[in-house]
């Protein structure tokens, strides 16, 4: 089972101009997650959520602190779903799936087909991304991430660029997919409702890149926004957000 361990992580970016100050995106964050969990990182824009995900994926490096992702003591395999689909526009859906595959050709095709079937795109193998709607492209992005059999799946606001109806539909599909695969997922979002619907743990980051809150969600799956318990949970998290904002305003004086 994949284990993500983050200890005293800080990330500072160099100043934008000569006279500017370095920008601290993440400040002294520590948390761990392991096993069949769906963890959401929630927070306002600019609190370092995506930066944290980039560091976990290895695309970016920490300024100080450590991030380790292991699977049974070995380096874990990662999958990534981005805000936009990030498909190669000049490659077909199947070729995009094979682009990230490390399986032999035939095996890779069979594996890709399985995940494309799962997202309802079993008959779109030979289509180019430009022939698909935004929601369909994001489905391919999700299938691509699952197809590499990731030990840890990183998702960076994958539904934020979609219209509300498509996003709702994809959230439901993701719930089904996660329940079927039980991957370890680290999911970034600024949408509390989305986090409550999908996660069994929500970590809230505050402005300045610190951990403000860490909550376990016990609601059974599948979760519906119309469920009173769901609404209560969402209200509780939103209440903590308001507290956070009030404290911030007070600190500013």
């Amino acid at each position: 089972m994949a284990t993500l361990q983050i200890e005293k992580l800080t990330k500072t970016f160099p100043p934008h101009s000569k006279d500017g100050r370095p920008v601290r995106a993440i400040q002294d964050i520590s948390f761990a997650m392991s096993g069949q969990v769906f963890v959401s990182l929630v927070g306002p824009s600019g609190c370092g959520k995506s930066t944290l995900l980039n560091i976990v994926s290895g695309v970016d490096s920490p300024s100080t602190g450590t991030v380790t992702v292991t699977q049974d003591g070995k380096k874990a395999r990662l999958g990534y779903v981005f805000q936009d689909s990030r498909l190669l526009p000049w490659r077909t859906v199947m070729q995009n799936m094979l682009y990230v595959s490390d399986l032999p050709e035939e095996e890779g095709r069979a594996n890709a087909s399985k995940y494309l079937e799962m997202v309802g795109l079993g008959h779109a193998h030979d289509m180019y991304p430009g022939q698909l709607s935004g929601g369909m492209q994001q489905r391919v992005g999700i299938a691509r991430a699952f197809s590499v059999s990731p030990d840890l799946l990183l998702m960076d606001e994958p539904f934020s660029h979609l219209d509300a109806i498509t996003a709702r539909s994809l959230r439901e599909e993701l719930q089904v997919m996660w329940n079927a695969t039980k991957k370890t997922v680290l999911f970034v979002t600024h949408d509390v409702m989305e986090a409550v619907q999908l996660s069994n743990r929500i970590i809230t980051l505050a402005h300045g890149g610190t951990v403000f809150d860490d909550t376990t969600i016990e609601l059974p799956f599948p979760r519906k926004a119309s469920d009173p318990e769901f609404a209560a949970q969402q209200a509780e998290i939103l209440g903590r957000f308001e507290t956070m904002e009030l404290e911030r305003t007070a600190a500013k004086g």
Partner: peptide, 14 residues
């Protein structure tokens, strides 16, 4: 492709 619905997705996922 847009006609794909959640039901077909769910069935294959399960």
């Amino acid at each position: 492709v847009g006609a794909v619905d959640t039901e077909s997705f769910t069935n294959t996922a399960i």
